[in-house]
Amino acid sequence: MTRTRPFLLAAALLASTALSAFAGEADDQIKAPVLRAAVNVTGEIVRVGDLIENAGVAANVAVYRAPDLGTTGVLPAAQVVAALRSHQVIGVDVRDIKEVAVTRLARAIDAKEISAAVAQALDHRNGLGDAASLNVSFDQPVQDLKFDASTSGALAPTNVRFDPRSGRFDISFELGHANGTSPTKLRYTGTAIETVEAVVLTRNMDRNEMIRSGDLQTERRPRADLGGAEPASRELAVGMQMRRPVRAGQPLKATDLAKPDLVQRDQAVTLIYQTAGIYLTTRGKALESGTEGDVVSVLNLQSKRTVTGRVSGRGQVSVDIAVAKPLQTSEAEIPAPVSVASRLPSSATPKAE
């Protein structure tokens, strides 16, 4: 008996060593579960596989209900470990994690995206301009929307109605889902107004006033404010003069502008007489206002005669000089000489001897 005990003990030690070696080999093949600090989920349930890495066969076990769409919930790490333990998930490596943040992913559609979808549905419809020029307002305040992360695609219009007289619209949309569920249906009503980029006066301006850059600012205005006329651009307006009085805050039309007068009525001007080889100037008084190229009447202060000329510059009027051309005739145009005999009366014709 005394010899058997050492043998049994040795056998037991060998068996223990073998089991330890086998266990060590198994530990090398199966990795320990590790807690995650941040978790993203797409559904309504948080599962073991969402919370830890290397969850194994327990990955699909439900643990928590997910937060609301698009929101994040925070759980103490100790609470998470206790919940996992209740589902027979033990030995979780928490590292230095104190809290676990769980975020439920969502498809968000804000009011700006909805407004853009309405404008796109009305693009060039019933006389409207392009979508970018439309100002859309809704009958009810538009709320930001959140859908399940499986929601895909854009808002697709299924029924579009627009009355060009009142500017009212009634549009239905569908929003598809990747998981095969029925699409979400949305409907919006309101008013759409076409706008244009216009230059607006910053002060009241009278007829014939010169427009400077500081007199203008650029705004988007309803096209109806222009009464069907083309809006004036800043580049066109600066340096021009007003054709009519316009109040501050009103958009400028192209028809409101005129070229600046280079000659004002009763202004002292320079009269220029010019032709080939001749260039004369004298003083005059403008009897009319005019811009470049206009024909105006001017009093020649030297001769006291009224002449007409074309405005050629600031304070300058050019007068055309008529030059007599020499008579040019060909031999065919010179009349043939008339015989004297043919002009005498028959009684005066000399008789032959």
Rank of each mutant, 00 (worst) to 15 (best):
S166R: 10
R165N: 11
F169R: 05
N126Y: 14
T189K: 09
L122I: 09
D144V: 03
P183F: 11
S150C: 12
P141M: 12
L145M: 06
G176L: 12
S172H: 13
A149H: 08
D163T: 12
F169D: 00
A192L: 09
K146S: 12
A121W: 00
G127I: 03
H177T: 07
S150T: 15
R187P: 01
L128M: 06
N179P: 05
R161P: 07
R168D: 05
G153S: 02
A178D: 03
Q140N: 14
T184H: 12
E174N: 15
D139I: 14
A178E: 13
G167E: 03
D123Q: 02
E174M: 14
D123I: 02
H177D: 05
F173Y: 07
Q143M: 11
Q143L: 11
S152V: 14
F173T: 07
N159E: 11
A154G: 05
H124M: 05
N135D: 13
T184S: 15
H177A: 12
V160D: 00
R187C: 00
Q143F: 09
I193G: 01
G176C: 06
A121F: 06
G190D: 04
R165Q: 14
D170Q: 15
D148W: 02
D130E: 15
P164N: 01
E194V: 11
N179M: 02
G180A: 13
L186A: 00
F138V: 13
F138C: 12
A149I: 02
L134Y: 01
A149C: 01
A156T: 15
V136S: 12
A132I: 09
F169H: 06
L122D: 09
G127D: 03
S166E: 09
G129H: 07
P157H: 06
P141H: 11
I171D: 04
A154V: 12
H177Q: 09
D123N: 14
N135I: 04
G190Q: 05
V136F: 09
A132D: 13
E174L: 13
L145S: 04
A131D: 07
I193V: 15
N179V: 02
T191S: 11
R168W: 08
E194S: 15
K146H: 09
F138T: 08
A156W: 08
T189Y: 00
